[in-house]
Simulated assay, not measured.
Amino acid sequence: MTSPATAGAAFEEIAALGPFFAVRTHPPGTEPSGPWEPMSRPLLEARVSAVRDWLAAAGGQPPGAIEPRVAASVAHLGLAARLVSPALAAAVLHGLVLAPRLADLRWQPVLGGPVPLSLPHDAFGTGSGSADPPARLADRLGRCLLDGPLRELADAMGPFSVSPHILRGNTASAVNGAATMLKAARPELTGRTVAITSLLLDGPALRDASTTAPDGAFRRRSCCLIYRAAPGGRGALCGDCVLSR
């Protein structure tokens, strides 16, 4: 496993990329000081209820006006982006792969922005450093991240009847969003970012969840449903939505 000093230095550089990338660390087997909570199923279900209330208030509607599956999809997309972003940056910048279980994560389930996240400093698996080829890193990210905590996160949305197709699209959108932010922050790493991201999107976990338009733009093959949270279900569509034309 990566040493605490190496992990700390990596997380510090990653945090400089922006709030979706920033994470804290804590010693494994301990709890970080402060108002941190485990990312447990009950708290994830409570998160969906909180997002439902937040969406309703934003549109001047009662909470019952928001379909539970809409709130679940929106909550899932935000958390997927939060988990994917530092993991992709760690792979691109340092050739390291985040390999935590969902139970290893600690978070502060605040609304209105990227949730604060803390990981045990041994959450990085072993790696060969930034010289690791994109194919190897994408394969390990697929197994350790997409088939790990991201699958657990999607499974936690089961009680809300949100389609697995939508959840896979959310994850693909989170991967593309993280790559877009990473390329903007570190343009000299664009080639490596694109290589790893493309392999992730074409890998077993996300294959057919998205497509590339003739102009090179990313387009998911599903909708996150957020447009349905607006009064009358007439909200704006996201730029990468399958319904956008």
Results as ranks from 00 to 15, higher is better:
residue 44 L to W: 03
residue 121 H to I: 01
residue 75 A to P: 06
residue 142 G to Q: 08
residue 66 I to S: 03
residue 115 V to R: 11
residue 29 G to W: 09
residue 164 P to A: 09
residue 131 A to I: 08
residue 61 Q to N: 05
residue 166 I to S: 03
residue 219 R to I: 01
residue 227 Y to L: 01
residue 121 H to D: 15
residue 98 L to M: 13
residue 28 P to G: 04
residue 72 A to I: 11
residue 203 G to C: 05
residue 75 A to S: 15
residue 37 E to N: 08
residue 35 P to A: 11
residue 16 A to V: 00
residue 100 P to S: 03
residue 124 F to M: 14
residue 26 H to S: 00
residue 28 P to H: 07
residue 95 G to H: 06
residue 206 L to D: 02
residue 180 T to A: 14
residue 49 S to T: 13
residue 154 A to H: 09
residue 136 R to E: 14
residue 122 D to K: 11
residue 5 A to K: 06
residue 144 C to Q: 15
residue 79 L to S: 05
residue 12 E to Y: 02
residue 46 A to S: 15
residue 244 S to W: 08
residue 39 M to N: 11
residue 188 E to D: 14
residue 104 D to I: 01
residue 22 A to I: 00
residue 162 V to D: 03
residue 162 V to T: 11
residue 1 M to T: 11
residue 5 A to R: 14
residue 23 V to E: 00
residue 93 L to K: 04
residue 137 L to G: 09
residue 168 R to E: 09
residue 197 T to H: 03
residue 217 A to T: 12
residue 239 G to P: 03
residue 58 A to L: 13
residue 163 S to W: 10
residue 92 V to N: 01
residue 69 R to M: 10
residue 36 W to D: 04
residue 183 K to S: 10
residue 175 V to E: 02
residue 220 R to A: 08
residue 149 P to H: 10
residue 1 M to P: 11
residue 103 A to V: 07
residue 170 N to F: 08
residue 187 P to E: 07
residue 2 T to E: 06
residue 49 S to M: 13
residue 54 W to K: 13
residue 112 G to E: 12
residue 145 L to T: 05
residue 167 L to V: 10
residue 13 E to W: 01
residue 202 D to K: 12
residue 84 V to S: 01
residue 47 R to Q: 15
residue 191 G to R: 13
residue 244 S to K: 15
residue 108 Q to L: 06
residue 88 L to F: 04
residue 190 T to S: 14
residue 139 D to G: 12
residue 194 V to N: 07
residue 21 F to E: 00
residue 91 A to R: 05
residue 144 C to K: 14
residue 24 R to E: 12
residue 16 A to W: 02
residue 48 V to R: 12
residue 91 A to M: 06
residue 137 L to I: 05
residue 121 H to T: 01
residue 78 G to L: 06
residue 217 A to V: 02
residue 147 D to V: 09
residue 127 G to K: 11
residue 117 L to G: 06
residue 168 R to Q: 15
residue 153 L to D: 05
residue 220 R to Q: 09
residue 33 S to G: 12
residue 90 A to I: 01
residue 16 A to P: 00
residue 1 M to Y: 04
residue 115 V to E: 13
residue 213 A to L: 15
residue 18 G to D: 01
residue 160 F to M: 04
residue 54 W to N: 14
residue 169 G to Q: 04
residue 69 R to K: 14
residue 204 P to G: 05
residue 113 G to N: 11
residue 107 W to E: 00
residue 236 A to I: 02
residue 34 G to L: 05
residue 83 L to Q: 02
residue 63 P to I: 11
residue 106 R to E: 06
residue 94 H to E: 09
residue 51 V to H: 03
residue 195 A to S: 12
